[in-house]
Deep mutational scan, measured.
Amino acid sequence: MIVFVRFNSSHGFPVEVDSDTSIFQLKEVVAKRQGVPADQLRVIFAGKELRNDWTVQNCDLDQQSIVHIVQRPWRKGQEMNATGGDDPRNAAGGCEREPQSLTRVDLSSSVLPGDSVGLAVILHTDSRKDSPPAGSPAGRSIYNSFYVYCKGPCQRVQPGKLRVQCSTCRQATLTLTQGPSCWDDVLIPNRMSGECQSPHCPGTSAEFFFKCGAHPTSDKETSVALHLIATNSRNITCITCTDVRSPVLVFQCNSRHVICLDCFHLYCVTRLNDRQFVHDPQLGYSLPCVAGCPNSLIKELHHFRILGEEQYNRYQQYGAEECVLQMGGVLCPRPGCGAGLLPEPDQRKVTCEGGNGLGCGFAFCRECKEAYHEGECSAVFEASGTTTQAYRVDERAAEQARWEAASKETIKKTTKPCPRCHVPVEKNGGCMHMKCPQPQCRLEWCWNCGCEWNRVCMGDHWFDV
């Protein structure tokens, strides 16, 4: 396979590697080409510095992935760790964990309700045991953590790749202090920090972006993250068709209702045909949960890209028209025109101005929308079919299609509260000796007794199943 190397943020060049090629071997190839010592090179990928003893497969490097290699003399205490030698983080029983690669970060837990604080980093599902597709590297999971809308060759929703760059020099040479644990960490600028490894760059702020994971991409090709779309790892039924499908869209209502993408497309087109989208002054033209839940309008309007190009163009047109109407304007009634106009409040005669090729020149009556006339309008008909009709959803289907309910059931079956801080902690095999993952707590306690870890627990039921 081919990976592209950008040395000291210059133009990239291809390097041929195998899945079992080590990072140090990659350094040696680059060092020979650039005429520099291999031990002064640092390989940066997806916000993480890659260790010498890791392989291309370990690092989730795919065909035509772009890695950054910078030349920086080692500072005291760094060289041993980078070589894969006596790194205290690798000691058996050590409590410190390697910062998780962005290629394996899962933010789907952050669609849980606000009262489930902490689960994004504490609760991990076991539903990723799908067998890898044919042709994928051994052991590589097909679980997708992110979804994007690819405006490039795909023109559809695709699995996405999370990447990070330095907000100062805009190069992907920043190593994160810690990985993101929720969508806010990724979507809110300057929320996460790190250290830029580019020479002479003092940058410390992280800037995240997404790429389409279905095809090789260049540095400049980015895609918009659709953070309401998630892999259906909890096997929730769709609120409309009641099938279990994946991926799904999880509405931001209190129940976190789930809808499959085909039904979401149908829901949007139906509402669009009836012009029953909601115009929100802050958000724009949007839709609420299909069950009509309060405070559930979709905030990231790129989710409506699921409509496809033709329907999305209609959505944008109707949204612009609705904006004009909300501002007190009118639409030209001549067939084939429909231009938005903003006449004076007491102006009865409205002319669709033909300047700049935008208007048709038609003069019409503001009251009856017919060709302009003197005197009273002959008839004014009330528009028919403008009443909002509820999208029919079966109550039982709505009850079963809740992301929140599956989460709470998982928590109930696989977790116990920490005796000190009461945060839910998952036990997935292993011994009875637990350690609270909350940095402010870190209590060592017994899963069996529910009390602080002691010699009695150690001698009596340390390794009970």
Rank of each mutant, 00 (worst) to 15 (best):
S22T: 14
V29N: 07
A320L: 09
K412F: 10
C59Q: 02
D60M: 08
L61N: 00
C360D: 03
F362A: 06
V393L: 10
F7H: 05
V290H: 00
D219Q: 08
I122D: 15
D60E: 14
V425F: 08
V250S: 02
N428C: 12
C263A: 00
L176F: 07
K129P: 12
L61R: 01
M458A: 15
F45I: 05
C59G: 02
D87G: 10
P202K: 14
H11I: 05
D18E: 10
P343D: 05
C365G: 03
V17I: 09
L102G: 11
N448T: 05
V105A: 15
G93Q: 12
A46G: 11
Q34S: 11
Q155L: 07
F45G: 07
A134M: 11
T173C: 08
G77L: 14
N448Q: 05
A397H: 09
G429R: 12
S110T: 11
P113Q: 13
H257D: 00
P202L: 10
P14E: 03
S193D: 09
T55R: 07
T177F: 13
F362Q: 06
A138P: 12
T204R: 08
T222P: 08
P419F: 04
D53I: 02
V350E: 03
S167Y: 06
T125N: 13
I2W: 07
S167A: 13
R392G: 09
N313C: 09
T125C: 09
W462V: 04
T83G: 12
Q165A: 12
K220E: 14
S198Y: 08
M432C: 05
V43T: 03
V148F: 00
G93T: 14
R156P: 04
F364W: 05
S223L: 06
P419M: 05
M80V: 12
V465S: 06
S378W: 11
L162N: 01
G292F: 04
S108Q: 12
Y267G: 01
A38K: 04
C368V: 02
C241Y: 01
R97W: 09
E310P: 07
N232E: 01
V330A: 06
E79L: 13
V423E: 15
L341S: 12
V56P: 02
L112K: 13
F24T: 07
A291C: 12
E195Y: 10
L41S: 01
T414W: 11
T388H: 10
G357S: 10
Q57N: 09
R256G: 06
Q158A: 10
K32I: 09
L50S: 01
V121A: 14
K151F: 14
L41G: 01
K369A: 06
G329C: 03
A320V: 10
P419I: 07
N428F: 13
L341A: 09
T231V: 08
Q311E: 06
G340A: 11
T237V: 09
E28V: 03
R275K: 04
G47L: 05
S9T: 05
T204S: 10
S223I: 07
N273I: 04
E98Q: 11
V36T: 05
E79S: 12
D60Y: 04
I306A: 09
D18S: 13
H433K: 05
T204K: 11
G308L: 03
K129C: 10
G94A: 13
D280V: 13
G213H: 06
A138W: 10
D60R: 14
C431D: 04
K349T: 06
H257C: 02
E310C: 06
L123A: 15
E207W: 04
Y149A: 03
N52C: 03
K412T: 13
E426Q: 11
E452I: 15
G354Q: 08
G135N: 12
W445D: 01
K349W: 03
V111P: 14
L26D: 00
R97H: 12
G35K: 07
G94K: 11
F7S: 02
L228H: 08
V111W: 08
D53V: 03
E49G: 00
D219W: 06
G194P: 02
L123G: 15
Y285I: 05
V278Y: 09
I306L: 10
S378R: 10
Q252N: 12
P424W: 04
N254E: 14
G118R: 08
I298D: 01
G361F: 15
C323P: 04
P159N: 06
P437I: 05
Q347R: 10
W74M: 12
G84E: 12
P202F: 08
V393S: 06
Q171R: 12
C166P: 00
N235A: 09
G203T: 02
G336R: 07
G329W: 03
E49P: 02
H68S: 04
C293Y: 00
Q438T: 04
V278P: 03
G459C: 15
C293F: 00
E16W: 06
C293K: 00
G328V: 02
V425I: 13
L41N: 01
A120C: 07
P281F: 06
S9I: 02
I44S: 03
Q100F: 09
V111A: 12
S167W: 04
P133R: 11
G213E: 07
H257T: 00
E310W: 05
Y143R: 11
S246D: 09
P335L: 06
W462N: 03
C451N: 15
C212Y: 02
E16H: 12
H68D: 14
H11N: 05
G84D: 12
V330I: 13
I44L: 07
Q178G: 10
R33N: 05
R334V: 07
N295I: 03
D18L: 08
E404D: 12
H265Q: 07
E79F: 11
R234N: 10
H227Q: 15
L272R: 02
R97M: 13
N8T: 01
M458S: 15
T351C: 11
L287I: 09
P335G: 06
L341G: 06
T386H: 09
V43W: 00
A82N: 09
H302F: 08
D115T: 10
C293V: 00
P153R: 11
C421I: 02
T388V: 14
L443I: 07
V148E: 01
D130W: 08
L325A: 04
F4G: 07
A214L: 07
T387Q: 11
V423W: 13
L107I: 10
K349P: 04
K211L: 12
M434T: 15
C238M: 01
V186D: 01
P153D: 10
G357M: 14
Q197R: 08
S407T: 13
E395H: 12
L331G: 03
T237Y: 05
W183I: 00
F146P: 00
L342Y: 09
I239P: 02
C352Q: 02
V121K: 15
K408A: 10
R156N: 14
V423L: 11
R191K: 11
E370K: 04
S131W: 10
N190M: 08
Y149M: 07
F7M: 06
E367R: 12
S141F: 10
Q57R: 13
L174D: 00
V248C: 05
E374N: 06
C95M: 14
S181L: 06
A92M: 13
L266R: 04
V121T: 15
G385A: 10
R275M: 03
F264R: 00
R156K: 12
C360W: 02
Q347C: 07
A46H: 14
V330N: 04
C182I: 05
L112A: 15
L174K: 01
D39V: 03
T204E: 09
F304H: 01
T173Y: 06
I188Y: 08
N52L: 00
I236N: 04
F362H: 07
Q178V: 07
N81H: 14
N295M: 08
D115V: 05
D18F: 10
G284F: 03
R366F: 07
V164W: 14
N454K: 06
I2H: 14
K48P: 00
F45N: 06
K220Q: 11
N356T: 15
E310A: 08
Q64P: 06
H433R: 04
L102F: 10
Q282P: 09
Q78S: 13
D274H: 04
S116C: 06
Y315R: 01
R33G: 04
V465A: 15
F146R: 01
C368T: 03
Q317C: 12
N454L: 02
V290D: 01
H215V: 01
S223Y: 07
C268T: 06
P37H: 09
I259M: 09
E399D: 12
T237G: 11
R33S: 07
G375M: 06
T103I: 06
A320C: 06
E367F: 09
W183R: 00
D460S: 15
G12S: 10
G319L: 05
C154G: 00
A134H: 10
K220C: 10
P113M: 10
R455D: 15
V393A: 07
G354P: 12
